[in-house]
Amino acid sequence: MARIIVVTSGKGGVGKTTTSAAIAMGLAKRGHKTAVIDFDVGLRNLDLIMGCERRVVYDFVNVINEEATLNQALIRDKNCNLLYILPASQTRDKDALSQEGVGRVLDELKKDFKYIVCDSPAGIEKGAHLAMYFADDAFVVTNPEVSSVRDSDRMLGLLASKSRRAEQNEEPINEFLLLTRYSPDRVKLGEMLSVDDVQDILSLHLLGVIPESKSVLNASNSGTPVILDEKSDAGQAYADIVARYLGEDRPHRFIDDKKGFFRKLFGG
């Protein structure tokens, strides 16, 4: 059974698109046929992060308006043949999306794909609403600072009340926390919230911590998802997250700057 994952946050600039690209690539690399959809109509970025911006012919809005078929619009990734990208339209706005149209495209994708990753735009308006509406699982991307945490909290409220699962009284969406741009040094100096601080406010299952890393910017600039940079800390952190999501038990890393601290703690 296909699963729809929404990558969401409320706040902008916290790493939703980076995360969407990384986990979609991670799932595909592990042998699952995966599609990643850019819901940020009018401000599309996913194609840049995935390095497929020069191959966009048709987009999500064309498919919704039945101006193109899904197969015409899906772009196969150059690094992994199990990964497909559905780009957003840059010349339209969020009103081009309709609940009925998004539902139809997702239903069609579900027939063929194991995982469908929805890259949500910032905010809580139409684009963000439709990105999360049909989700089975939610990856809530949060930076360790108060405004991001509060926006995530707001988004969690919407996931619990305004999604299809909530409206039809089905089992609620599985919610996971991804703490991004984490810097243990700055936590120590009191400049940043710690994992525990964030958990205290959100009380959510922590799927992983992504350290602040130069490799993320490098990956964005070169158009390759950071998870492919296997030597980088951020790349490894995303690989851990994908493994944990798929049910593997991996100890958390990158929370403390002392290397090997968690290995000691968990006896691994």
Partner: peptide, 8 residues
């Protein structure tokens, strides 16, 4: 019995 989130 479910968390009451910001905005609810």
């Amino acid at each position: 019995t479910h968390p009451i989130r910001s905005g609810q």
